[in-house]
Nucleic acid binder design. Structure first.
Length: 874
RNA sequence: GGGGGCAUAGCUCAGUUGGUUAGAGCGCACGCUUCACAUGCGUGAGGUCACAGGUUCAAGUCCUGUUGUCCCCACCA
């Protein structure tokens, strides 16, 4: 048999184990009518991405769930993929081209796309390799990229269906424009921050009058596009201006003063410049008053030809100049500091410019409704459910979705314009115009928002719109695991897309987790430089330690802090398991019997009982996605019950020289070890697989083993409870020795008044060993155990230990007195309940009985303590 | 302005549907070369569960309010 190394070193085997899983096809999910499918779609990481801590946690959680389900006998599919990330990738490639002294425009669309694909081939696979290092058990044979043929077909189908239903339209609306990326963005792609700015007060002269009206603005440059000034209709200060004409400074235009309820008289000056082409509110006001829309800015954020002397200037340079010019004209009234919300491009952080532009939109209201209903009706469940509120909040306040992007890398919008004016929307590229027959068709230049294809992910990956065997078997999916920050971008959109296209919710459960923060609770970010690279952690501690540290002590949906200390304690635990396994294996020198053929001792029944309870609790927790609770429970069982107690309890049998006893002990040790490893496997797959390979007998991979099942016949509840008395006895002796500073090596003589002599006798060797005792003698109640004796009431009986000179009677009297007070307190507390008629009447019978039993126990303790105190006083 | 989270031991956090004496890890104290493991073993100290009300036989847990703190959304120019 192979020998295990003395210390756990993940570098020895993690890579090898992963290779083995791959070679033996362990991750492959088959369509098996005899099994129930369980499907998880991996949120596809961007091809621009590198694995970060957030991914590490997200993927670990998915891997735990999928390994658990696989072991439970489901046909468990975890489908991996990567996302083309239209904007992010294009942004990166454009930067690269720039550094090479060229640009996407000079390359042209075709060449640019060729480079983009090359880029994808070169870097897009990096994250896949990183996922493998983490131990992800995804079905790589189904790896999908969002621009694969199957996804492209799904995108076209989805677009056409929505268009045909009238839910996609093209129109000129105010959209968020990023002047750096030179594309439109959706509302969700704009990040608002509270930025310090100024409030510039400008005076606009009234035509044919000496009067002026003062407006306040945060964006002076937009005044060149003003087509009105609005005041509140009830504002006495401005009533007489309404209907008058203003001379817009720096231009030769005349603009009206209009009355509109939108204006808040209490804010600013109470008069608002209206720039319908560059502000969403003003756009609405413009519509109401039929105002012209004048766009004064180009796609790159410079002022356009309509801006006269300011044409060609960057928007901020123009702002400066305009303020200067207004000052020269005596029309600058004042400048006051003003902080306000400014939208930034989530990709490049440039200040987003709201402007009117012709774009493609998805009409959201009809799609949002069913998506809300599905969660209301519990067809899809958020875990934890508080995130449903956030989901509702988003969908209830949703605006139409701007889906066109002025980008080349992505799914090109399947729309063609004919020279005759016809717009053709088609699943297949049309050759000629169906109306005029012309072959001069131009495809829409724009691409779709990345999230348009991500929204289809749960089914496009399975071959939809075809009814492929995969789609029919694995869809709808079961669990989606993602962070709360992705709800508006993705979860929501998958929901309404799934319902709209497949008439089914795309997933049954949405498991939401929080962010991984740094050890001070700050978000990990590039700018702060406080990010920890998961791969560094894996290199130092192994993937198992990282995985375990990311899911222990974390409540569902809550943010968590990453600390190296947590990884260390995970590593320590794994080392413990490693050594416990090594201990069991180094004692195996014979054929180990099956549990069924072993005559179980009380200690055996106790550990098996504990194992069963653990199996039950862990299974229930995992089914509820309580990964943290399940992990805590498992660690507690493995470390405390199994390693610290049972292994120590088994030593007399192992070393006692009786081969039959040794065989029996080994049988139980192996049984518990095997089950513990299986339970731990979803969390720490590598080390459990490695240890598994050392276990005696012919066996396959632990990854493909059945998950342990709770077995009522092995629950031994009563016996386990009784055995706790032995443990309590041992703990009491240890505590007594510490109390009197008795060296651990000094063996003590125990005297016990107990009704459970048999239980004590059977475990005598263990008790002597673990308590550091030389002998146990039974005595009768009231019988003396000698002078200078300490006593303790334990679960199993009244314990007396003669400790000779170590005993300080006075100190002991004080301790007993304190103990007596505590016990009396407990009795009073129990009485408080039991003497309360309402408690006795309304609480469950079990509760009342338990309370009575407790009181009896404490009364008994009280008597014994008093007896000892009397003894000392004599 | 709207929505949500959090407040429990020195620190980081768990605490399922209300029900034993509120837990863990780290840290701290004392003691241990016990033949798997010092990445270890044993024993222990440490909490009026933010505050104030309420519901209940029973509240860390449910309800209302207060305070502190963090986050998300929002078109106050």
């Amino acid at each position: 048999m192979k020998e295990m190394q003395t210390t756990y070193d993940p570098k020895d085997f993690e890579e090898r184990i992963y290779q083995k899983w791959m070679q033996e096809n362990c991750f492959r999910a088959e369509i098996d009518p005899a099994k129930v499918p369980f499907t998880v779609m991996m949120p596809p990481p961007n091809i621009t991405g590198k694995l970060h801590m957030g991914h590490a946690m997200d993927e670990t959680m998915q891997d735990i769930v999928i390994r658990f389900k696989r072991m439970q006998g489901y046909s468990a599919l975890w489908l991996p993929g990567t996302d083309h990330a239209s904007l992010a990738t294009e942004h990166k490639i454009v930067e690269k081209l720039h550094s090479e002294g060229t640009s996407k425009e000079s390359l042209g669309r075709e060449e640019f796309l060729r480079r983009a694909w090359a880029w994808k081939e070169e870097y897009g696979g990096e994250i896949v390799e990183q996922l493998k290092k983490l131990g992800c058990s995804c079905d790589w044979s189904r790896l999908t990229f969002t621009m694969d043929e199957t996804c492209s077909r799904a995108v076209r189908e989805a677009f056409c269906r929505l268009y045909e239903k009238g839910l996609i339209y093209r129109g000129s609306r105010i959209i968020n424009w990023c002047p750096d990326c030179k594309t439109a963005l959706s509302d969700e792609e704009v990040v608002h921050t509270e930025d310090a700015g100024f409030f510039w007060h400008f005076a606009y002269p009234v035509e044919g009058s000496e009067e002026k009206i003062v407006i306040a603005t945060t964006r002076p440059e937009t005044m060149l596009g003003d087509t009105a000034v609005a005041v509140n209709p009830n504002d006495e200060r401005y009533k007489h201006f309404v209907g008058k004409t203003l001379l817009l400074p720096l231009t030769d235009r005349k603009i009206p003063v209009v009355a509109d309820d939108y204006v808040d008289p209490a804010f600013g000056t109470g008069a608002v410049k209206i720039t319908p082409a560059h502000d969403p509110n003003d756009f609405e006001v413009g519509l109401r008053h039929d105002l012209p829309m004048i766009r004064i800015m180009g796609d790159d954020g410079t002022m356009n030809d309509l801006c006269g002397e300011f044409a060609g200037l960057d928007r901020y340079e123009a702002r400066k100049r305009i303020v200067e010019r207004m000052k020269e004209l005596g029309l600058l009234v004042k400048i006051e500091p003003h902080s306000h919300n400014v939208g930034h491009c989530h990709r490049c952080n440039a200040v987003v410019e709201p402007l009117v532009s012709k774009q493609w939109f998805v009409k959201m209201a009809p799609l949002a409704k069913p998506a809300i209903d599905a969660v209301v009706k519990n067809k899809t469940k958020f875990v934890p459910d508080r995130f449903a509120k956030i989901y509702f909040n988003w969908l209830e306040n949703i605006h139409d979705w701007c889906i066109s992007r002025q980008l080349w890398w992505g799914h090109r919008i399947p729309v063609w314009y004919c020279e005759c004016g016809e717009t053709i929307v088609a699943r297949e590229d049309p050759k000629v115009c169906p109306v005029c027959g012309s072959a001069h068709l131009n495809q829409e230049e724009d691409c779709l928002d990345t999230w348009f294809s991500s929204a289809l992910w749960p089914f496009s990956t399975l071959g939809w719109p075809e009814h492929t065997p995969d789609f029919d078997y694995f869809y709808p999916t079961d669990a989606l695991v993602t962070g709360y920050d992705i709800i508006p971008f993705w979860v929501m959109r998958m929901m309404f897309s799934g319902i709209e296209y497949t008439e089914k919710v795309p997933f049954r459960d949405v498991l939401i987790h929080g962010l991984v923060r740094d050890e001070h609770g700050r978000k990990m970010s590039k700018s702060l430089g406080n990010g920890v690279d998961p791969l560094d952690v894996i290199a130092k501690y192994g993937a198992d330690s990282l995985r375990l540290s990311l899911v222990t002590g974390v409540a569902p949906g809550n943010d968590t802090r990453f600390t190296e200390a947590k990884v260390e304690s995970a590593r320590n635990f794994i080392n413990k398991i490693w050594n416990a396994s090594r201990f069991v294996l180094m004692n195996v020198d014979c054929e180990v019997p099956d549990l069924k053929s072993i005559r179980l001792q009380p200690a055996d029944r106790w550990i098996i009982s504990r194992l069963m309870a653990t199996i039950r609790e862990v299974t229930v927790s995992l089914q509820k996605y309580d990964l943290g609770i399940a992990a805590d429970r498992l660690i507690d069982f493995a470390w405390n019950d199994f390693c610290d107690w049972y292994i120590e309890l088994s030593k007399p049998a192992l070393y006692g020289g009786d081969p039959e006893k040794k065989k029996a002990a080994l049988g139980v040790l192996l049984f518990v070890l095997e089950n513990t490893l299986k339970l731990l496997h979803p969390y720490i797959p590598f080390v459990t697989e490695e240890i598994w390979s050392y276990l005696p007998g012919e066996r396959g991979n632990i990854i493909s083993e059945d998950y342990p099942r709770y077995n009522t016949k092995l629950s031994y509840k009563k016996e386990a409870k009784a055995f706790e008395g032995v443990i309590d006895l041992i703990k009491t002796v240890r505590a007594m020795k510490v109390e009197v500073s008795c060296p651990p090596s000094r063996k003590v003589h125990l005297f016990l008044v107990t009704e459970q002599r048999r239980l004590v006798c059977v475990n005598k060797q263990s008790i002597l060993r673990l308590a550091g005792a030389s002998e146990i003698d039974f005595i009768e109640k009231g019988e003396q155990a000698g002078d200078k004796t300490l006593s303790h009431v334990t679960e199993i009986g009244h314990l007396f230990v003669p400790l000779g000179d170590l005993v300080d009677i006075e100190k002991e009297k004080i301790r007993l007195q304190k103990e007596l007070e505590r016990v009396m307190g407990e009795i009073a507390r129990a009485d408080g309940k039991l003497l309360n008629k309402n408690f006795v009447a309304k609480a469950s019978k079990k509760l009342v009985d338990d309370e009575r039993a407790k009181k009896e126990k404490y009364l008994d303790m009280k008597e014994k303590i008093e007896q000892q105190l009397r003894l000392f006083s004599e």
